[in-house]
Simulated assay, not measured.
Amino acid sequence: MKQIYVVRHCQAEGQAADAPLTAVGQEQAQDLAAFLADRPIDYIVCSPYVRACDTIAPLAMQLGIEVQLDERLTERVLSEQNCPDWMDMLRATYDDLELCFEGGESSRMAMQRVVQVVQEMLERPGEHAVLVSHGNLISLLLKYFDDGFGFEQWRALSNPDVYLLSFSDYQQPSMTRLWLK
């Protein structure tokens, strides 16, 4: 059985690619490392955004695992415009996966790139892996495997958050939320 721990980054100072973790986020990263340290993790694949890398760095250091960065795990861009009604726009993209705003990426497009990463992870050697990314992209990955996962479930995600996807013979995975703090 293949298991992928899907990790949302810890609390960050903003949404920019170079936004670091807050002081609280740094403490959360240590807690996350302690939470995952006793699990048999073979490799880690991570968004190159600073907040994602800093989230998983303590665990990687503790386990002696080099983090593999993957551009496909960057956060989904809703629009290139600064939209005051972005929350309503985002909600609409869970109902219409093809909806795409100017300069942005549809839910389907973002979903396809993160699912491709997971499919490649399933083909790799090793039974246990960690995928580190961002809330909207993770919610779309979880929606791919469970169509009931939508806008409200995205809103309920925490920073950090951890879901375990367990794949038996590459079938539909079981999905368990592990981080309940």
Results as ranks from 00 to 15, higher is better:
M1L: 08
Q3H: 11
I4D: 00
Y5F: 15
H9R: 11
E13H: 12
G14K: 11
A17R: 07
A19V: 06
P20H: 02
V24E: 13
Q28P: 02
Q28F: 09
A29I: 02
L32Q: 00
A34H: 06
R39V: 03
I41F: 02
D42Q: 04
Y43E: 11
C46W: 00
V50A: 14
R51T: 00
R51A: 00
C53S: 09
A57V: 03
P58M: 04
L63Q: 08
I65G: 01
E66T: 15
Q68A: 15
V77S: 08
S79Q: 06
E80W: 08
N82E: 12
Y94P: 02
D96W: 09
C100T: 09
G103F: 13
G104V: 06
G104E: 04
M109I: 11
R113C: 07
Q116N: 12
E127V: 08
H128Q: 05
H128E: 03
V130H: 08
V132T: 13
H134R: 09
G135I: 12
L137N: 05
L137D: 02
S139Y: 08
D147A: 14
G148S: 10
G148H: 14
F149T: 03
Q153G: 10
R155S: 07
L157D: 03
L165F: 06
L165E: 01
S166N: 07
D169M: 09
Y170F: 09
Q171H: 12
Q171R: 11
S174V: 12
M175E: 01
M175S: 10
T176Q: 14
T176H: 08
L178W: 04
